[in-house]
Design a protein around this nucleic acid. Structure first.
Lengths: 266, 266
DNA sequence: TGTTGACACTTCCCCAACGGCAGGGTTTAT
DNA sequence: ATAAACCCTGCCGTTGGGGAAGTGTCAACA
């Protein structure tokens, strides 16, 4: 039994416009198209496909991905695609939850002060002189999402070779500009025995500040330091790095995390 | 001290392209633009504005909203805008959590059966004859988000006038097509005393099915019923309605909710 | 059988928030 | 002086359709 596009649209709660669009993308072709009038006709079997499309959309698949998914026969691949979207949803929820917390906190602040920005705007910046710091590190282009993975590798190595660490967990940003999806990042762990280090961060003058809270607004700390460096006549001598003093591994809420930011200067 | 666009971009981790775009939108105009070369120059004071923009973006404001926000002087309005975004984030997180649960459940199912759709695809549809049902109702164009609000009004009225209810909580969809943001919906509560009813749902033949789980995939139930109606030679006689048998008010997880769907037919 | 209203068709432009590229001018450091 | 780095404008592309214009078809009622 043939169903007109309008009927079909109502049955599966998808707009006529969307159906025509899916036809164009070859995502869901009508079972018959009238040769002369170009009227589209659907049938029973299309309905299930349409419901699958709706589902996959809910799960965060793009239309292109849905098309690939539908045509894919390998169960393993299908499974891993579903898993991937599950991860995506999870991390999205976690991300949003952190932001919600932050927003909550600044709303409280706003009620008192009437300002949005002085939540944590008073970074104390100072100059210190650091010593050479031997680290075990691994550098590559990566997304900030992959931090855990690379630290895992480092920790495994440390455990296997019984290296003594200093307890410093840090990351060095080698790009001038920071892109959270693809940056040249070196993750490292401070160690005591310089002979086993993969490299040594040379000591020297550094502008340093401490950032408290989740990483969502770390850029504000960076901005504050860069501004301070300009104002005080210093110049950036080497890529900046962060040392994670308190973080999720300490099992405390994100707003208690502490991160030190170091900018080697001259 | 004037800062070139590239420098400024690095300081606040915003792409040059984005800065030019914000200039075009008059969201963040450079403090100076060279008359001859059109080079943009920023300064100190722009930095804070830029950080505010980044924040508001995180909280879910669109650029147009940010512009309005920045130019708004009324604290009350600012406050309510922040609150609104907080609500938005919350409901987004809740929504995503429900979807995550669903996805989780179908992934488990997929491992066993290799299918994405038979999670709940076996709607049992039957024909029953309903009796006239007096209800107290309120009909308007609304978003599904506003359900709670209108039920609240109805319940208040019932409490005040000491009306005896049947315990049925239902909604009637008057539009042919369903748009979750703006539909002609009548929310109602079944009551015993017909003389106090705002209207009576006429009894008669109905195709009915029960949907178990959250409302995200209710459309699949609707589709199943509509298909069944077509297949069995019936015609839809009146707008369909849902009766919420088990829902969030019963304090059970969303996957245990039960909703009966009625389609009056002839 | 004619008419009329509902339904269908295509094509074009629009949204947000930029990214990428081409083609050309400017600054800065050596 | 010259090259490298930086900056400019302008145009097209992205996602998933919505809206409107202008025109052709279908089904039901008189």
């Amino acid at each position: 039994m043939l169903i007109s596009i309008g009927q079909f649209s109502k049955i599966c709660s998808v707009s006529v416009k969307a159906l025509r669009y899916y036809d164009k993308l070859s995502l869901l072709k009508p079972v018959k198209v009238d040769e002369f009038t170009s009227y589209r006709y659907y049938d029973e079997s299309q309905l299930e496909t349409m419901l699958v499309i709706n589902r996959l959309k809910r799960y965060g698949f793009s239309l292109a991905e849905i098309k690939a998914f539908i045509n894919e026969k390998d169960k393993g691949i299908l499974f891993s695609k579903l898993k991937e979207k599950e991860e995506g949803l999870k991390s999205d929820i976690m991300h949003k939850s952190l932001i919600l917390k932050e927003l909550d906190s600044i709303i409280k602040n706003f009620e008192r002060t009437g300002k949005i920005m002085d939540y944590q705007n008073n970074y104390k910046i100072s100059i210190t002189t650091t010593k050479d710091m031997p680290i075990l590190s691994s550098r590559q282009r990566m997304s900030v999402e992959d931090f855990g993975k690379y630290y895992g590798i480092l920790f495994t190595k440390i455990a296997r070779e019984a290296i003594t660490t200093t307890g410093d967990v840090l990351a060095i940003y080698h790009d001038d500009e920071f892109d959270e999806n693809d940056s040249d990042i070196e993750v490292g762990i401070g160690i005591k025995d310089a002979s086993k280090a993969s490299r040594v961060i040379s000591g020297g003058k550094c502008a340093v500040t401490m950032h408290k809270g989740s990483y969502a607004n770390l850029t504000e700390a960076y901005a504050a330091v860069v501004r301070w460096i300009n104002e005080n006549g210093y110049k950036i001598a080497a890529p900046p790095y962060e040392i994670y003093r308190i973080s999720h591994v300490d099992n405390v809420p994100a707003d208690e995390w502490e991160t030190d930011i170091y900018f080697p200067v001259k």
